[in-house]
Computed example of a mutant assay.
Amino acid sequence: MTPSIDIHEDGHVHTRLCNHAVGEMEDYVEQAVQRGLTTLVFLEHLETDIRYPQPSWLNDEDFAVYFREGERLKQQYRGVIDIRLGAETGFNPAAIPIIRRRLADYPFERVGVSCHFYRHGDVHLNLLSNRRQSLDKFAAIGADTVITAYFNALTEAVATLDCDVLCHLDAVLRHLPGICFNDGHKRQIEQLLDSMQAKNVALEINTSGFDYRGTPFPADWIVAAALRRGISLRAGSDAHQPSEVGRHFDRLPAYLAGIKSLSTSGATK
């Protein structure tokens, strides 16, 4: 039997409020309705104490707009599509108490966890940036060092935060050529999945990966390892413009059917 995933729910979309996407919230809802989705989850960026020159997240004023407009849309589209308001919580190991407080202050209906930034001296570097300057800095620091810190951060995030889903697990340094995970990184991923299993945290199948590398985030062997642990899967487009809502969801059943043999054999890459 093909692993279960709901391809009529997009659990991860962003809007102009995050400062690096386009489109109003209603634009995303309309696109979801047109695509025949039954549920749309806004998972807007929440970052805490990040020192980065171009904010790519919402501030408190933005979240006020977010919830006000989200509640309006819930009423307007009641009976048409289920709309949920969540957060993609960027993990900062130096700000755990503040992150917890902020999550408690907002009525989030889903909390995703991710890690977008790496502390380097007195500033942060964007782990998912395609800017040449950022990539050169990461190359100078050493990809293995950065990746090790990334997986340590995700494991700590799952252990210390109340969260529902882990987003784009292996997207770290996705724009740095020649990236691969060594045996130590693979052990970290196994430990991370163990933590997710223990806390009943779902794994996101992020279909933006089809556009970046031809397969979703995370890699098939990671999904297989998650399935062996009974970890549930959530589909997320990581849309940053309305046209990307539900992107490539039609490819997921066949993709996951191909992973079934990996999950039963225990194979890794």
Rank of each mutant, 00 (worst) to 15 (best):
His124Val: 03
Glu24Ile: 00
Asp122Tyr: 05
Val13Arg: 00
Ala139Leu: 13
Lys199Leu: 01
Gly11Trp: 03
Leu125Asp: 10
Met25Asp: 04
Leu227Asn: 07
Glu9Lys: 10
Gly142His: 12
Gly246His: 05
Ser114Ala: 15
Gly70Cys: 03
Asp136Cys: 01
Asp211Ser: 14
Val111Gln: 08
Ala64Val: 11
Gln197His: 11
Val33Arg: 12
Val123His: 13
Ser4Asn: 09
Ala224His: 04
His45Cys: 02
Gly79Glu: 06
Leu173Lys: 05
Phe217Asp: 01
Asn182Ser: 13
Thr39Tyr: 01
Ile83Leu: 05
Phe151Ile: 06
Ile5Asp: 00
Trp57His: 11
Gln54Ile: 05
His14Val: 02
Phe63Thr: 00
Trp57Cys: 06
Ile205Gln: 06
Ile99Leu: 12
Val123Lys: 13
Asn130Cys: 08
Phe108Arg: 04
Asp162Gln: 14
Tyr28Glu: 08
Leu40His: 05
Thr48Gly: 02
Cys18Gly: 02
Met25Asn: 01
Gln54Asn: 12
Phe117Gln: 01
Ala267Lys: 11
Thr155Tyr: 07
Ser243Asn: 10
Arg35Trp: 00
Phe117Leu: 06
Tyr66Arg: 05
Leu262Tyr: 11
Gly236Thr: 02
Arg78Tyr: 07
Arg174Gln: 13
Phe91Ser: 02
Met196Trp: 03
Gln191Cys: 07
Gly70Thr: 01
Asp60Met: 09
Gly258Ser: 15
Tyr212Gln: 10
Ala235Val: 00
Gln75His: 11
Ser114Gln: 11
Glu71Leu: 12
Leu37Gln: 04
Ala198Phe: 02
Asp49Ser: 11
Lys137Gly: 01
Phe108Gln: 09
Trp57Met: 02
Asp82Ile: 00
Asp211Leu: 10
Ile231Pro: 04
Val158Leu: 10
Leu192Asp: 09
Ala235Arg: 06
Ala64Phe: 09
Ala198Gln: 15
Gly11Leu: 00
Thr2Asn: 08
Thr207Ser: 15
Pro53Val: 03
Leu128Ala: 10
Ile5Glu: 01
Ile81Phe: 03
Ala94Gln: 13
Ala224Ser: 09
Asp136Met: 13
Pro93Cys: 04
His124Tyr: 12
Glu61Ile: 07
Gly178Tyr: 11
Asp170Glu: 09
Val223Cys: 01
Ala202Phe: 06
Gly258Thr: 00
Ile222Tyr: 07
Glu190Thr: 11
Ala95Thr: 05
Leu227Asp: 07
Gly36Arg: 11
Ala87Val: 13
Gln188Leu: 14
Thr48Arg: 07
Arg251Ser: 08
Leu128Met: 11
Arg132Gln: 14
Ala171His: 01
Val29Cys: 05
Arg84Val: 04
Gly112Leu: 15
Ser56Gly: 15
Thr160Lys: 14
Val158Ser: 09
